[in-house]
């Protein structure tokens, strides 16, 4: 379970994330929505231990992201936005490298398993620089799930992909969540993705969390709005606090 308490990140006078209180249950697919510059990536960077919070705390499975950062990193998988990986290395070499760093025991077996899950075995020994964006994204997911993490953080995983690529990534995430019970925390600004895949949603604007609910509860609370898009604009525009 992921819990944040008053998680805050300030850059001098600018507050990127302001007293964020979140709870993401095990096995959930959490869509973290917000406009550009809302604070999504900063939140993700803190949760993945890349940057330190200014104040507040966050725990993943009881481990503090600051004090127990190595344990936290063992629990998580992460795919940043627009990751290119090492172009001169093959998909297998990239995965072997990241797998070793993640202390994966039986790397070669895990690589085969993950690549067949992603339907990618054909391109295992091809250099990553020859891949399309969608293929690179799949290899990016492969490195993130190689050690079967408890929680997977994704930053705009379908950004820049064509409809076919978007669907493939969506199907993969649903499968990982179903087969392994992996919790997925996904930054996105695509409402359509959230409706198709997420069980829970958080909306952030100007660093402040406006709402954090299950999609079922949210639609029940906003009966007058016909779609999630209408709900989103009502919450963002109205500044409703959940």
């Amino acid at each position: 379970m992921l819990i944040t308490k008053d998680l805050t990140k300030k850059y001098q006078d600018f507050t990127a994330v302001d007293h964020l209180n979140l709870k993401v249950n095990d096995g959930a697919i959490f869509g973290f929505l917000g406009h550009n510059g809302a604070g999504k990536t900063t939140t993700l960077s803190m949760l993945t231990t890349l940057i330190l919070p200014t104040t507040g705390t966050a725990t993943i499975d009881g481990y503090d992201i600051v004090k127990d950062n190595l344990q936290v990193r063992n629990l998580l998988g992460y795919l940043p936005e627009n990751v290119m990986l090492y172009g001169d290395l093959t998909a297998r070499e990239n995965l072997q490298f990241f797998g070793k760093l993640a202390n994966v025991k039986d790397i070669d077996r895990n690589i085969e398993e993950v690549l067949s899950l992603l339907n990618f075995t054909k391109w295992t020994d091809k250099k990553v620089k020859t891949f399309s964006k969608g293929m690179r994204q799949r290899i990016g997911i492969a490195q993130a799930i190689l050690h079967k993490p408890k929680i997977l953080f994704l930053d705009e995983p379908t950004s820049g992909l064509d409809p076919q690529g978007t669907k493939e990534i969506r199907d993969i995430l649903l499968q990982i969540n179903k087969d392994w019970g992996t919790t997925i925390f996904m930054n996105t600004h695509l409402l359509s993705e959230v409706t198709k895949i997420c069980t829970d949603i958080g909306i952030i604007s100007h660093g402040k969390l406006l709402v954090s609910e299950s999609i079922a509860n949210l639609t029940a609370n906003f009966k007058e709005e016909k779609s999630l898009e209408e709900i989103y604009f009502k919450i963002e525009g109205g500044g409703i606090n959940a």
């Binding site: 231990t49 940043p80 990751v83 990986l85 090492y86 490195q143």
Partner: peptide, 14 residues
């Protein structure tokens, strides 16, 4: 940093 691999590396126990 440009390829995004720095974030990947530092999200591992490194």
């Amino acid at each position: 940093r440009e390829n995004g691999t720095l974030k990947l590396l530092l999200s591992k126990p490194v």
